[in-house]
Design a binder for these strands. Sequence first.
DNA 1: TTTT
DNA 2: TTTT
Lengths: 181, 181, 181, 181
Amino acid sequence: MARGINKVILVGNLGQDPEVKYMPSGNAVTNVTLATSDTWKDKQTGQAQERTEWHRVVFFNRLAEIAGEYLRKGSKVYVEGALRTRKWQDQAGQDRYTTEIVASEMQMLDGRGSDSGMGGGMGANAGGYSQQPDPMGYGQPHQQAAPQQGRPQQAPRQQPQQSPPLAPPAGFDDFDDDIPF
Amino acid sequence: MARGINKVILVGNLGQDPEVKYMPSGNAVTNVTLATSDTWKDKQTGQAQERTEWHRVVFFNRLAEIAGEYLRKGSKVYVEGALRTRKWQDQAGQDRYTTEIVASEMQMLDGRGSDSGMGGGMGANAGGYSQQPDPMGYGQPHQQAAPQQGRPQQAPRQQPQQSPPLAPPAGFDDFDDDIPF
Amino acid sequence: MARGINKVILVGNLGQDPEVKYMPSGNAVTNVTLATSDTWKDKQTGQAQERTEWHRVVFFNRLAEIAGEYLRKGSKVYVEGALRTRKWQDQAGQDRYTTEIVASEMQMLDGRGSDSGMGGGMGANAGGYSQQPDPMGYGQPHQQAAPQQGRPQQAPRQQPQQSPPLAPPAGFDDFDDDIPF
Amino acid sequence: MARGINKVILVGNLGQDPEVKYMPSGNAVTNVTLATSDTWKDKQTGQAQERTEWHRVVFFNRLAEIAGEYLRKGSKVYVEGALRTRKWQDQAGQDRYTTEIVASEMQMLDGRGSDSGMGGGMGANAGGYSQQPDPMGYGQPHQQAAPQQGRPQQAPRQQPQQSPPLAPPAGFDDFDDDIPF
DNA sequence: TTTT
DNA sequence: TTTT
């Protein structure tokens, strides 16, 4: 249950191909960066100005697998999620904070980046939490095929501490591992 | 799964106490009307103007029970949901349409209308589809107690056709009944 | 100023080309219908099911002109706006209600339907209310060229009462006309 | 104009009283921290868990003055805005990043924290960008009275660089100053 | 009436 | 640092 509302809605383009990793539990975690931009005319000079905002978006579980399979650099995507700021330590041992959007819904808005039959226009909810009783079995091929190949038999090590560590949102998924964040 | 995004976010006050009904399957359906308003100054006269918009909101299942128990006339509430336009026939047999917001999330924003310990600030997701593994067992007392008392042993008749009939969103819940809409 | 929040976010496809009309004041009003859909598997039969929701969206002023120029049947579009239910009389003089989304922001999500250089990805705010000091002068060509051609010299008559009449949102724009709704 | 959508919707409580500052241009900038939280039951232990998310929200111009006047520690508030990540240098000269929500709309949801007649339920748009022709002249008393008292005759110095510097969103307001961010 |  |  939530006290308060923490909601983010983004429509933007991926800056890079998604990075898919697997938790020791086998659950997928996919990170992407999404660009949105504003353009305006400078009042003084009349020059066109542009500022691009880069958003770190993280997908978990089934949504992570769908994102990893269907999104590519340049893909235009709708993302809905929640803000989460993670604390981590840099090389010097200093506290650092990174703010991300933990995605709960994703929808591709173009056909690029899709070498499958899914094409632009698919939609997906956070793994296992769809409002639909059975969202057309998206997860099946992923849970059986894709992850089987991509998932290392040996649980991957936690990344070294100088980079922001993976971190599932509390109570968001079914990780058995006890990962502080 | 969804193609496209259909999202409504409302913060408003209830015009009346909630109306709770039960489907033949025993699932709860709660209807409320929510007011939002705009005020502005008339350009000509400088007079303050106000327009109130009334929104029909419908809750299903567990969320319907929570809404029925904790909301009251005047309650301030956050509602998130989707638009759905239902077709029905008036007395003359003419097609009529009613647009409602099918709520997927609700959050009380004040303590009024709550004679329980829940108070303002609680949050609830659409029944059974919470992103939390177990959202503190809200449904339990409701599914066991409240509905048991309120739910008629005999399935209630469908309302007469001159009023907009109840209608669950397709694929939204686990009704076994085949209700067209 | 608003009391409460009345917000709609849609991503969908146009069912038809936009219908652009002009108010007696010369301000544009554009209506489109937007489709969003849900698909799911029937629990009993395992059959794929689909339900399409049709949304009436109305744009005013500059946004109406941009929508009329760049959107076409099939266009995928992001729309943000507010719900408004209008009352009107049918042929029999009976009160009828129509719920629409009054758009305050629009963004094309594909290149189709655009025979201009604007392409997919443009964004536009409600006429005159952009957060940007000068949103790149979108309105200029429209306010000067397009409307000049499309706008009748004689103000068009209000539609006959059997169809839902045009109606700007209260306090939303700068109409001098006094149109009840 | 925007390419893409960058939207945040929060409902939460202020962790502290707002901090109001004034730019050299005289424009107000108000910072608040907003708490949202999730609670859930641990799957293993059945223990209730809670995680609070803290959001940095920044208001500019007229909205900053309204926020500074009416919000207080503990106030429940609705905020709509956009994500912006600012780059700044810490004492060691290292690049640091801070993500904030630049508010474009704010609405008080309770009466606490308000010693004025405005009470809970008021709404306000980003200064000067309201969709209403004249949102009841909110800014007037603030622009004339409140800021006059609170605003130093001498423009305040930019904060030392070890703390994240003030930074208006690009193209968001009418600052003449050239502040990099 | 759209879309995949 | 809030809130319930």
